[in-house]
């Protein structure tokens, strides 16, 4: 049952969206989000949606996979929509008790939902087409200038990639320990919340112990291979911008400028 958890799932592929430099994709997502928050009316939102649709088509990631990724966030979407509907001042349509439904509120809710949905799908598109390792590489590279301010960028990126690397390992381990305790009659499925929480102790204690053991072993193994942090360390896969990166970034920038202009004009 733990196997169903997917985090930052990456669908391997060989499309333009996959081959783009991860740094480009990261910057594009940032620009996209900025543009989204400048959009105001149907025209600007339509432009953003159209652009996302184009990217999805290029990446060959199924539209269904993107929508499925939104499922856990549906509650947040509904919550924001309802809040916007009732708490935006304007012409009232209906009101009961302290709630007043306004025309402006309904529009605000519609746009807010579109905005959040586009935002989520845009970022998901990036994680679907970029392997977690490439992504941490990109983050490390883009945050590089912060090294001058003594921010341990390399160490942070290393921690991130180690954490990502060990998620599947720990899930597998937890699965195994749960089976072993079930074989001794442990019961994780029945009883109230308190009983179930208590029942998790036989899983969590061995899991933590093994996580610490693994961390210890990994540290030793890294030291044996003379790891000493980021200074002077070279990369196996050096990130290099290509022509296509420039092209995509410029396109994204143009779309953003378009959305900002449209938005400021109120469309």
């Amino acid at each position: 049952m733990l196997k169903d958890i997917t985090l930052g799932q990456y669908f391997p592929g060989n499309t333009l969206a996959h081959r783009l430099d991860p740094r480009t994709k990261l910057m594009m997502v940032v620009l996209y989000i900025v543009a989204l928050f400048c959009a105001k009316g149907f025209l600007s939102y339509g432009l953003m949606a159209l652009f996302l649709l184009l990217c999805v088509r290029i990446s060959k990631v199924g539209f269904r996979a993107l929508v499925r990724g939104m499922k856990p966030l549906i509650l947040i979407l509904i919550f924001t929509a309802v809040l916007n509907m009732f708490y935006t001042p304007g012409r009232a349509i209906a009101s009961f008790w302290v709630f007043t439904l306004t025309v402006e509120g309904v529009w605000a809710a519609v746009f807010m939902v579109i905005r959040i949905a586009l935002l989520i799908m845009g970022t998901f598109l990036m994680t679907y087409t970029t392997s977690p390792i490439a992504l941490t590489d990109a983050i490390e590279n883009l945050l590089g200038p912060l090294k001058r301010l003594r921010v341990p960028v390399h160490e942070l990126a290393m921690m991130m990639s180690i954490a990502l690397r060990f998620i599947p390992t720990l899930i597998e381990e937890a699965d195994k320990i749960m089976s072993a305790q079930k074989a001794r009659g442990a019961d994780f499925e029945t009883g109230n919340l308190l009983r179930r929480a208590k029942a998790m102790a036989p899983v969590l204690v061995p899991l933590f112990i093994s996580a610490f053991r693994r961390a210890d072993e990994l540290a030793t193994a890294m030291e044996c291979r003379c790891y000493h942090g980021g200074e002077g360390r070279t990369k196996l896969h050096v990130l290099r911008y290509q022509k296509r990166d420039l092209f995509c970034l410029v396109t994204m920038a143009l779309v953003m400028i378009g959305a900002v202009i449209l938005g400021s004009l109120g469309y």
Partner: peptide, 30 residues
């Protein structure tokens, strides 16, 4: 599961109790 006992591979990684006695007693207690 009480009639058919299964000892997993590397079963030492499933120990969790404070004492050996309590750990061995986990199954019978269940």
């Amino acid at each position: 599961r009480f009639h058919v006992g299964l000892v997993f591979q590397y079963p030492e990684y499933q120990l969790f109790e404070e004492t050996v006695y309590q750990d061995v007693a986990f199954g019978p207690k269940n």
